[in-house]
Write a protein that binds this DNA or RNA. Sequence first.
DNA 1: CTAGGGTGTTACCGGTCTGTAACGTCACGA
DNA 2: TCGTGACGTTACAGACCGGTAACACCCTAG
Lengths: 193, 193
Amino acid sequence: MADGISERVRPRDRILETAQDMFHKHGIKGVGVDAITEAAGTNKMTLYRHFESKDDLIIECLRATACKAAAIWDAFEAEYPGDKLAQLHAWVRKASEMLANDSRGCDMANAAVELSETNHPARRVIKELKEAQRERLVNLCREAGVGQAELLADTLSLLLEGARVSLQSVGAEGPSAQFVRMAEGLIASFKAR
Amino acid sequence: MADGISERVRPRDRILETAQDMFHKHGIKGVGVDAITEAAGTNKMTLYRHFESKDDLIIECLRATACKAAAIWDAFEAEYPGDKLAQLHAWVRKASEMLANDSRGCDMANAAVELSETNHPARRVIKELKEAQRERLVNLCREAGVGQAELLADTLSLLLEGARVSLQSVGAEGPSAQFVRMAEGLIASFKAR
DNA sequence: CTAGGGTGTTACCGGTCTGTAACGTCACGA
DNA sequence: TCGTGACGTTACAGACCGGTAACACCCTAG
């Protein structure tokens, strides 16, 4: 009792957490605000007191997800302080774990697919956050002593993005099964130059 | 006059063509059957006389799209008969053209993202068609004289898939801009072994 | 000419969606 | 004690969704 996990959390945070989970599992257009609030143990009015609209909730969810991703990056630095190459390998390992444990891919990429309107407010945010992640991977590659850091980072980035979407369309036995092999091969190849 | 393109085409084919286009541009859940039939110059009743349901229409659209893709593959064989390596390079060129001219990615991958329900009837079809394309690319790589044909084919496959989804989330200046360079580098690298 | 199948039109059903209004409740702090 | 603000509840608006019924029309094959 008084576990402090689900009871004392503010409705806004419960909504945000639940929405992230449900958007991830069922897609943005696949879940309504009613379902979110019910699963969060609250109601629609409370949601609209904390978020201007569903679009606003979507954006806040994407930001929160990006925040969690950033925390994972920080964990690499904490685990292998200063050893950028080890951090790069940790990135590959973490990516393959995600491929193994979750078949719904990247929230931002999925959102970009679902929200096809070019002027949708979430698209700006998606682009921002994705570019930030790209820059972080480029820096990691560069500091790991790779010559063509941008090219390696972009290649790894596309490989992972492709693996996550392929996982959804072809399944776990598809091309994504070879992700680690491909990524490690690439890193070795770029290091050798 | 009597151009025979839009006038004499049967309603079913107009619906199928229009639905492909609209699903591609706006996503599956982003367009309703009313909008499709209106754009196709017909009405909802006629649609439901030719297709059991919207899900059925979706599936037929995916099959039709796969058919068009298969025709593109056939064009490679027609253009470079017997020269499998040239056909592989043509595949890369064609892929980069698609990346340049269309920012909405692969219909099947997008559909897999949107239709998150694991039992959705379209998912079987998506998997089938994607596996067929994978096999075709593997064969092309093998017959082009590549040692690890499966690995190269899967890597190229993930790269393209990633480029198409990255194009939607980050834009044309993102990692997808380097697709040709990556793909050609990979092919050269695999050929060299 | 006639019969029938493919098509167009209108209206409708039941459901779901986002978003809002009005009101009731409860805890907490001055 | 009082009041203030956060939260819950109910009801509803207005739009859109997929899908169906009933009927009128027209072209063509026989």
